[in-house]
């Protein structure tokens, strides 16, 4: 609607000839069409296909997967890192490159990215470029450069909290090229993590907490979708398992074909739309 308002301000809508309207039903259809096209212009949605995450999880998201060309926030220490790694392995399996931006503080506190571990998770380190910034400002700049460059499929930034302006800039940059943008907070925290009430320009906000593993020791997390634009917030228990023919030799064709995947162990419960409930 903002676009319509600006057009009106400029007097461009006023100069259009009034469309002949026959009956109520047709007018309703025309309005819906206009709203849809303006919405598409405003948000750039639908231009970029969504990234499928897990068969049991995708139907719960309005886009049928994680929407590309958008910013996603993930909090919750090392478990959030694991969930993000699982998402990135799907990006890498599609042939995409990943830019990882971090500040020295994040690397010191939460550990440095470990190539051998990433390779095991299906993120071949040859598809990963790490940019180390001195401060958050430089890190956000690097993220935006990456998002606008059209050379990478996903950009990750490690920051506990960024301003709404920075948030919105990242979202807009992601929309231009259709890359996935992530803000990850993986600093170890004491106590229970709660949903953040801060407003955000991101399309989704995920809160991940560790869950006790099953008998096969596959990593398992409770994943709370705290905020989801245009959809209800939900929660799942997810498990990640390596692919059956997981191999560490990149020349083996199975290396990229079967990067393992996420699976839903249990869907916890539906929560009211827009809810900021604390688990």
């Amino acid at each position: 609607m903002a676009l319509a308002a600006t057009l009106q301000d400029r007097g461009e809508l006023a100069s259009l000839p009034p469309a002949p309207v026959r009956d109520r039903a047709e007018r309703g259809q025309a309005l819906a069409r206009l709203r849809a096209s303006i919405g598409a212009i405003e948000r750039g949605q639908g231009r970029h296909a969504a990234l499928p995450l897990a068969p049991g999880l995708d139907p719960g998201l309005p886009w049928g997967g994680l929407p590309r060309g958008a910013l996603h926030e993930m909090t919750g220490g090392q478990a959030a890192f694991g969930f993000l790694a699982a998402v990135l392995s799907a990006v890498v399996a599609d042939g995409g490159q990943v830019l990882w931006c971090q500040t020295a503080h994040a690397a010191n506190e939460a550990g440095e990215l470990y190539g051998a571990g990433l390779a095991h998770w299906g993120i071949a380190p040859d598809r990963l470029v790490i940019a180390r910034a001195r401060n958050t400002q430089d890190m956000l700049w690097a993220m935006e450069e990456g998002l606008r460059s059209a050379a990478v499929a996903a950009v990750v930034g490690e920051a506990a909290r960024v301003s709404l302006t920075a948030n919105r800039r990242l979202q807009l940059a992601a929309e231009t090229t259709g890359a996935l943008a992530f803000l990850l907070d993986r600093l170890p925290r004491v106590g229970v993590t709660t949903a953040s009430a801060a407003t955000t320009a991101a399309l989704t906000r995920w809160r991940v907490s560790p869950a006790r593993t099953g008998s096969d020791h596959a990593p398992r997390w409770q994943v709370d979708l705290d905020y989801c634009r245009g959809g209800p917030s939900r929660a799942w228990q997810l498990e990640w398992r390596p692919g059956a023919s997981m191999t560490h030799d990149p020349h083996d064709p199975a290396y990229r074909r079967d990067p393992g995947g996420l699976a839903v162990v249990a869907e916890l419960r539906d929560r009211p739309a827009g809810g900021r409930a604390v688990a």
Partner: peptide, 28 residues
């Protein structure tokens, strides 16, 4: 929708602002 172009221009820009030693890849 397909990421086009190589990483080189991006990497150059990052390395020139952040410093040569701060844009890295991991290797075994």
């Amino acid at each position: 929708g397909v990421p086009a172009g190589s990483l080189d221009p991006l990497v150059d820009r990052l390395a020139n602002r952040l410093g040569k030693a701060d844009v890295v890849r991991l290797a075994p």
